[in-house]
């Protein structure tokens, strides 16, 4: 199989370049990450992140043939040759396929991704009814791989001000949680022309999410709540 991979080592290269690789591999049931690890045996200077290799940790997110995805759950058989691999767009490249996620996590932290509840903690746990718990489905599964946020043009133009789809999905995860008591503060924080309203419903986020989540729907739900609160 033929691969074209983005290479950049800031210590030795003046500019990034694309390097061609040829790998003797049967696509079969193998995933893209399997091929990448074999390529790394050929050329140990090739750098990438990986950990769980089963789509749970979200560390091997990259741009695969122009579309963001996780290498470990992308079947080789689904890819057109030459397979073009680039780092996630919109973030600074550290080396080869590794990007600096600082800005992404800064935005994630800015939405206070934790339960805010000042009631004295109960002896066992804060209970929810099955119906209340149902609202968190499709929200809590996010693995923060960054595929959605880095495919969003609004994030490319304003990474310091726009929270991005992943952060907004998590913001709604806590707004929708009946155990959280900071709904009003959370909505106030997002009622800004940048933090949430830079979203122009481009829906690249929905298109690329490897966990098939829908940040766009979550953003719509936040807008609905803001409108309800206002009228």
């Amino acid at each position: 199989m033929k691969f074209r991979i983005y290479r950049y080592n800031p210590d030795t290269d003046t500019a990034p370049y694309m390097r061609d690789y040829d790998l003797d591999i049967e696509a079969g049931n193998k995933m893209l990450l399997d091929a990448l690890l074999l390529l790394k045996q050929q050329d140990d200077s090739l750098s990438m992140r990986k950990s769980c290799r089963e789509g749970v940790c979200g560390s091997d997110a990259m741009n695969i043939n122009g579309r963001n995805g996780l290498a470990c759950i992308t079947p080789l058989s689904s890819l057109k040759e030459p397979v073009e691999l680039r780092p996630l767009p919109g973030l600074p490249v550290i080396r080869d396929l590794i990007v600096d996620m600082t800005q992404f996590f800064k935005q994630y932290h800015s939405i206070k991704p934790y339960l805010i509840n000042n009631d004295p903690p109960p002896e066992t746990e804060r209970l929810q009814s099955p119906e209340q718990r149902e609202h968190l489905n499709g929200l809590y599964e996010c693995i923060l791989c960054g595929c959605c946020t880095t495919s969003c043009p609004s994030f490319w133009w304003n990474p310091d001000k726009f929270v991005g789809p992943a952060g907004l999905l998590q913001a709604y995860r806590f707004i929708a949680d009946t155990r959280d008591h900071a709904t009003c503060e959370r909505l106030n924080d997002l009622e800004d022309p940048y933090r949430l309203f830079r979203c122009h419903t481009i829906m690249n986020c929905v298109d690329v999410c490897p966990k098939e989540l829908n940040p766009n729907e979550a953003i719509g739900n936040i807008k609905d709540m803001m409108v309800k609160r206002m009228v």
Binding site: D160, K161, N188, L190, E191, D192, P193, Y194, R195, L196, F197, K223, M226, V227, M230
Partner: peptide, 15 residues
């Protein structure tokens, strides 16, 4: 500093 927090996002979006 990153300046955000103007509260006309919702109003303009709705209008």
């Amino acid at each position: 500093r990153v300046v955000v927090g103007a509260h006309y996002g919702l109003r303009d979006w709705l209008i």
